[in-house]
């Protein structure tokens, strides 16, 4: 029974549905009529060159940018356009922004604590401990100021914060940026682990497709604010353009 049926039920459980999402910045269209979906338990990667609007897309979902009339974002079937960012976070969307953005003058543990506002009081400690299990590097630095961590550790903390929050959907923006390859690999290893074990839903923006594609179920390619291509990884991986753009050697 199992395999086919599970797949069927997953398909029907749509977590995020974006329709006709348009963002203007100073008269320039940053995102034009984007429509996309993310299903529960899916890992979706967004690819595209610099300036294609990937970060804006994540910020739009989190409520950080103003959307044009007609834009719609349904999260678990609920329209969240117009919600304040903290409300969207409370609905269950965590955002790991570009550049980590840890709270520098707070300890590692406090950084994780403040991310657990939507978790009921009794479960908070358990969630935080699960982060320390995933990232043992952080476990030894619980009381260290987050600002004094290395870049890799800060990225782990930022992802840890999203995990601690118990959100259903995590938006991750360029987690490899500015980090040494060995650290990046370490982080993606853990991400993979998380995805495998928790069936967490990820919407991942990552320049390095070599890292992100193995993790992903489906891909959207953004170009100049529009979706240029979409499909399951298996199909799109062989596409010549994708090959040229992201896997070309030299």
């Amino acid at each position: 029974m199992p395999i086919l049926e599970t797949k069927m039920s997953e398909k029907t459980e749509e977590l995020l549905r974006i329709k006709n999402l348009t963002v203007m910045y100073n008269g320039i269209t940053a995102l034009r009529s984007i429509s996309m979906t993310v299903d529960k338990g899916e890992v979706v990667s967004v690819l595209g060159p610099n300036g294609a609007g990937k970060t804006t897309l994540l910020r739009a979902i989190s409520g950080l940018v103003k959307l044009e009339v007609g834009s719609s974002i349904l999260f678990s079937g609920k329209e969240i356009v117009g919600y304040q960012p903290y409300k969207i976070a409370c609905e269950g969307i965590a955002h790991v922004p570009e550049g980590r953005q840890v709270f520098p003058a707070m300890s590692v543990n406090e950084n994780l604590e403040v991310a657990t506002t939507r978790v009921s009081r009794g479960l908070r400690k358990g969630r935080i401990d699960s982060v320390y299990q995933l990232f043992s590097e952080l476990a030894g630095r619980k009381n260290q100021q987050a600002g004094s961590l290395s870049g890799g550790e800060q990225q782990m903390l930022a992802i840890g914060r999203a995990i601690a929050s118990g959100s259903e959907l995590i938006l991750i923006d360029e987690p490899s940026m500015g980090l040494a390859p060995i650290i990046v690999q370490r982080i993606f290893r853990t991400l993979k682990e998380i995805v495998k074990e928790t069936r967490l839903t990820l919407l991942l923006v990552e320049q390095n497709a070599k890292l992100s594609l193995p993790l992903s179920d489906r891909i959207y390619v953004l170009s100049q604010g529009s979706i240029a291509m979409e499909g399951p990884v298996a199909e799109i991986h062989d596409n010549q353009m994708i090959q040229d753009m992201y896997f070309a050697k030299g």
């Binding site: 304040q84 960012p85 903290y86 953005q101 403040v114 506002t117 914060r161």
Partner: peptide, 9 residues
């Protein structure tokens, strides 16, 4: 901004 992203009003 980050505070609001972790759900702080």
């Amino acid at each position: 901004e980050m505070a609001s992203l972790v759900g702080i009003n």
